[in-house]
Structures are given as structure tokens and as C-alpha cells.
Design a protein around this nucleic acid. Structure first.
Lengths: 147, 147
DNA sequence: CACGTATTTGGGATTGAGTCTCGTTCTGTG
DNA sequence: CACAGAACGAGACTCAATCCCAAATACGTG
């Protein structure tokens, strides 16, 4: 890693997938690029709509395939917001990650991170004697705007 | 977990619902009784199957109605395990609650609680300045047996 | 560059959890 | 025991997600 530019998420994704023996295809590229540009989690349906709106419609099957592939390789995260739909979001290669608050009033998804929380989960997994590969924390309440 | 103390969960549920002006009905009773007997979260489909297997089949609509009612009154919790299915579980009237670890190997759902984690979430919500009504923590990894 | 094979893609059928509707049945009250 | 409102259930329906398979594409090789 030189000082020029940190590797972007899409670059990271491409290198991981290439190393795993995957070829490149148009559909995958477009889903990755779209995801790379998002500030927060998108649902598969939103991805499908967004790509169609951009004039590059992608088959539903391909979208789900790409998302599954990304999750499998730890490159994206599935956020289960409730019954009926999952949202997906890029995972930063630096390892930094965040969690979400769903506002009961406006339905907005707010991202946050918290070292204390990470520490607590760390201690917890040690106490339980299990190897925790991944953790989701989802808070439900009212966001600042809706207080 | 806890021993059977004076007010059982079903008694608590009945009193809360009665106070909210609900009548009693056979379907609701059976779902509540079934849920009361469970050690851990069940999906709506599992509830439907279990009740049919016991010889008291309950309409799907009623099951979802009851579950929604319970969640609404803070008597049960919905655990979003993944895409396409929610699980439901009784909430202890004492306020004690727990979270879950999903084992990647065997798919088992393991319950645990942790004061440190609760404290971290408490501090966090204060820091963010939001009112957190509910929180879910879902760990993914390998359970003791599958280590 | 042309070729051949393995991978990727997408349309469309299918699944399955969850929701909705509406007529019937039950509960609690006067 | 009659009535009004609450609860129930069968089944149609919605919609995210999966499956299937033939066509298109990537890419190493000759």
C-alpha cells in the first residue's frame, strides 16, 4: 500500500473475486459499482430499480447472485431490517464497520459506530467461549429528527 | 434460564391483553400456550405446524394476528434470522432479556445474555441522543459444539 | 484472430412467507 | 338469551427470493 490512494472498495472487491477465480461480467460490475456509490444499505429491489433507471437493467437472478457472492466473501453485509426484505451494504476493507438504528417514525436507517459496543461484544464472545465471525446490532427507536 | 416463579408468562400475557380490552379466543390461547412452552424462538410456520400436529390446527391469519399483537404489547420479540423468515419468542415479564448466536455450522440458535452488552447499548443511545425502544443483537459464528 | 470451454447472464416460472378479505363463529354483557 | 363487537379461518393474493435453462460472454489456447 503506497501513500497514493487507499484501495477503494470496488478495487478491493475485484481483487478478492479475481483471487477466488472469478471472471468479470457486466452484471456483476454494475452491481458492485452501484453498491460502491451508496451511503447506506440498499435492498435487492432498490438495486434492480436503480440499475434500470440508469439505463442498464440487470436480471434479478444476477443481482441476487452477486449479492450472495459478496456476502460469502465478506465484502458486503446483509442487514435484516424486518420481515420480507434484506438490505445490502458494502463492507469497508479497513475493517471499520457500523451498525444501524431504524426509526420507528420515519423508517429511516441511520448508521453509527461505537467502540464501547465493539468492546462489549468482544468480551462477550470471549466469555462465551465461541468464535464470533460476525455480529449485527439493530436498534429500534426514534431518530433525532423524529424525537 | 429462570425457574417457574409466581407469575408465568402466559398469565402475564393474559392480564396485559385483558387490560388492553381484548376478549379471549381459542386460537390466541393456543398460540400463547405453545409459545410459553418453548425454550427458544419459533417461526410462524413452525407454530402452524406444531399446532396442527397437536390436533388443534389454527388458521394462518390468526397466528400472524396473535404474533403481531404480542409484539405490539412488548410480550414477544421478533428475531429476524435471515431473509424470508422471522422467529418469535416470549419476552420474560421480569424485563430480563437475551440475545442470540446463530451457529454457522449447525444452524442452531443459542441464547445468551450479557450485562456488559446492555450497558454498552445504554451508553451508546445516550451518546447518540436517541431514544432506543428496542435492540437486537445477533452474533454469527460457531457454537461450542461445532468449534 | 478464431476456437472451444467454462463462467456469467437474464427471462420467466416457481416457491414460500406474510397479508388481506370477508363471511362465520364466539365472548362477554345487559 | 339476545345482541354487538371481537376473534377466527379459508383461501386469494402480494412480493421478495430462488430456480431453471438456454443464450451470451469472458478468456486461455492454438
Amino acid at each position: 500500500m503506497s501513500h497514493t490512494e487507499a484501495p477503494t472498495w470496488s478495487e478491493h472487491v475485484h481483487s478478492v473475486l479475481a483471487r477466488a477465480g472469478h471472471q468479470r461480467g457486466g452484471a456483476r460490475e454494475r452491481v458492485i459499482e452501484l453498491l460502491a456509490r451508496q451511503p447506506c444499505a440498499l435492498s435487492a429491489v432498490e438495486i434492480e430499480d436503480a440499475l434500470r433507471a440508469e439505463g442498464t437493467p440487470i436480471g434479478r437472478a444476477s443481482i441476487y447472485r452477486v449479492l450472495e457472492l459478496l456476502v460469502e466473501h465478506g465484502l458486503a453485509e446483509r442487514v435484516a431490517v424486518g420481515p420480507g426484505q434484506s438490505r445490502f451494504e458494502a463492507i469497508d476493507p479497513s475493517g471499520a464497520h457500523h451498525h444501524h438504528l431504524i426509526c420507528r417514525e420515519c423508517g429511516r436507517l441511520v448508521a453509527f459506530d461505537d467502540p464501547g459496543l465493539e468492546r462489549a461484544i468482544d468480551n462477550l464472545s470471549r466469555r462465551l467461549g465461541v468464535r464470533v465471525e460476525h455480529h449485527d446490532v439493530l436498534l429500534r427507536g426514534s431518530c433525532e429528527k423524529c424525537e
